[in-house]
Write a protein that binds this DNA or RNA. Structure first.
Lengths: 221, 221
DNA sequence: GGCATCGATGAGAGGTCTCTCATGAACCCC
DNA sequence: GGGGTTCATGAGAGACCTCTCATCGATGCC
């Protein structure tokens, strides 16, 4: 399952794609214009974008350009009615990961989307990025990306974030968190954990770290 | 520049590809049958493979299959005369990164190859551990291991160590180090670099960071 | 050797990080 | 609603990090 953003202004095609991709188990959202598509893409809520070139407000090339300029590495499959070599090359050099000319077979689009998603998974695993919903923790640069916005973390905040993200949905006691993020196998009788959960909440958004009274904390994906 | 393996039995096409890709500055080798292609691909001497499907000895699907079974992640662009959705899907699901049906424009192939190479570079750049002689820098845990002993590094020390280790034996000016490890493209007229080289020397061993009078510093592998 | 330049390093200012403590709010049980 | 427990959070101490500055030593040139 992946979260796929379709940016396409022809309703008939958008609906066709949405239906097919949903049937494959993906979670699909459709948007009909460029500016809105760019915004959604930058929100961090999607794993892949299917992008039409001919769009209202700003065209697909521009969307791609802005997206890459903002540092996003989201896989993008470009889809267009114009079957010109020039467009293909422009799109691919502009940062698209794949390009299909209409008319195309759905089976081919599906296969190409799956390749990009597979690649992304592999890259994430190798590069060391932890993702859960719209939250991504870059293990290399130690930065946190929430809804497309990046924040720096202190060493301790990072350790705590890593533990929480590696155990999404699971309740972790203060003792467990101390053990995993502080390397302390004893309780120093303090509330460090509480304090750091507070700090993380400011950066992560309060709702994402849930308090389970009497038990501990839980990261909400 | 990349090292590209072309596996194609039609001489005319193979020559055409070799010529075009060489002109782009790549180092190209051509092979005319499947088994030999597989061997070359597994040798580790190439960055990317352009693979035809219809081949003597074993066909392209089989080559792809074996290659992936052996754990290789080399980017593969499949190129074939058969333009059937079924083949496209098979190739992509079988581990190809891209698929072009003949006839195709060279410009499009070039663009698609460049996308795959770009992707590969990005992935390579972001994994693991930096080593040089008896010094290892763990990029994940941000620790330095020298002759078996581990030390912690501060954020700035780590950045500097990373830059030095990535350019072993090379003299780096203070301005370069400021740019690379401090993200400063101006000289603040200070001696921060000198100071941090001093700190690093304490952890790395004095002899390993050499002063090049009037020029800068050099990491000695 | 004398002088000028360049690099090494200790001291320390100011900032950030980590943790403790105290206080007040939220919650639960009765 | 009352009382006890649990959690959230601001304030602040102390350690550590980052950088500047001044001083001293090393080096190269004449």
């Amino acid at each position: 399952m992946a979260r796929i953003l379709i940016v396409e202004d022809e309703d008939r095609i958008a609906a066709f794609l949405a239906k097919g991709l949903s049937a494959d188990g993906h979670q699909v959202s459709t948007v009909g214009d460029g500016l809105q598509g760019l915004e959604e893409a930058l929100s961090g809520a999607f794993d892949l974008m299917v992008l039409d070139i001919g769009l209202p407000t700003i065209d697909g090339f521009e969307v791609l350009d802005q997206l890459r300029a903002q540092g996003s590495r989201m896989p993008v499959v470009v889809l267009t009615a114009r079957d010109s070599v020039h467009d293909t090359v422009s799109a691919l050099e502009g940062g698209a990961d794949d390009y299909l000319a209409k008319p195309f077979r759905f089976a081919e689009l599906r296969a190409r989307i799956n390749v990009r998603l597979r690649q992304q998974d592999r890259t994430d695993a190798e590069v060391g990025e932890l993702r859960s919903g719209s939250v991504a923790l870059d293990l290399r640069t130690r930065r946190l990306r929430v809804d497309g916005r990046e924040t720096d973390l202190s060493a301790r905040e990072f350790a705590l974030a890593e533990v929480l993200l590696r155990n999404p949905g699971q309740v972790l006691s203060r003792a467990q968190l101390l053990d995993l993020a502080w390397d302390m196998d004893f309780d120093p009788g303090s509330n460090v954990v509480d304090v750091y959960v507070g700090y993380l909440r400011k950066k992560l958004g309060s709702a994402r770290v849930e308090t389970v009274r009497g038990m501990g904390y839980r990261f909400q994906p």
